[in-house]
């Protein structure tokens, strides 16, 4: 019988996957307009005009739900001084030499940095997205602002997608992580190995 502890509650998991689904919808529809080689992706959304109509709504929904994740998780993601050591040992991180790494709380510094990059990208996407939302908002802004927003939107989307590629791969790489977000539980050993300080916190509370 495996010993398991809860890492994510049902609310957190639902919130996460709702954002994930919207990320794929907004992301694929955005990529369709990002490069001609990906214009075929508009077919997934009912053609070019439908992609143009739906994309901003999916983006706003993603942003709003992502704010839910921010409220739930931001206090676990504050970078600390001791996180520097982990970053310095990134070679050990990438080569599975976790025994050499400093102890980790609920999130490691890589996860924390991901959190802040995601938040920054989402904020830029939301603000620039309003400016280039031709149907309702563009007429409130000068053309130079619209051009800057179009560029910022593409740059932020690029950063977001790159970060999510890293995020998804980390889930595939660190066995047990996907389970943590799917059914909420991790093994005691998983917690001890990857997040020893968090493990100590949790087990101390229970005693």
């Amino acid at each position: 019988m495996k010993k398991e502890i809860v890492r994510y509650g049902a609310g957190e998991r639902t919130n996460h996957w709702a954002v994930a689904i919207l990320f794929f919808m907004a992301g694929l529809s955005g990529l369709a307009l990002f490069h001609p080689a990906l214009f075929w992706l508009t077919n997934l959304f009912g053609g070019g005009p439908w992609t143009r109509i739906l994309h901003p709504f999916m983006g706003v929904a993603m942003f709003v739900l992502f704010m839910g994740l921010v409220i739930r998780f931001w206090h676990h993601n504050i970078l600390e001084k001791r996180d520097v050591q982990w970053v310095k040992q990134i070679g050990d991180v990438l080569n599975n030499r976790e025994d050499k790494l400093p102890e980790i709380g609920k999130y490691n510094p890589g996860q924390k940095m991901l959190f802040w990059v995601l938040l920054a990208s989402m904020l830029v996407l939301m603000l620039s997205g309003i400016v280039i939302w031709r149907e309702y908002f563009s007429h409130f802004f000068p053309i130079s602002g619209i051009r800057l927003a179009a560029l910022a939107h593409a740059v932020a989307a690029f950063l977001l997608i790159l970060s999510i590629i890293v995020h998804i791969y980390a889930g595939i790489w660190i066995k047990g992580s996907i389970g943590a977000m799917l059914h909420g539980k991790v093994s005691l050993l998983w917690a001890k190995k990857h997040h020893s300080l968090w493990y100590k916190d949790i087990t101390r509370d229970k005693k």
């Binding site: 495996k2 010993k3 990002f34 490069h35 080689a37 990906l38 990438l94 080569n95 599975n96 976790e98 593409a154 690029f158 997608i161 790159l162 590629i165 890293v166 791969y169 595939i172 790489w173 660190i174 066995k175 047990g176 093994s187 050993l189 998983w190 001890k192 190995k193 990857h194």
Partner: peptide, 28 residues
């Protein structure tokens, strides 16, 4: 095209990391 290539490169980097370093298990 550069950012598309960067995204593709990130996916490939992940794949080859898995091939070379392998998964990180906390097998009970």
């Amino acid at each position: 095209p550069l950012s598309l290539m960067a995204m593709g490169a990130a996916v490939l980097a992940g794949f080859f990391h898995y091939v070379r370093v392998g998964p990180n298990r906390a097998d009970e």
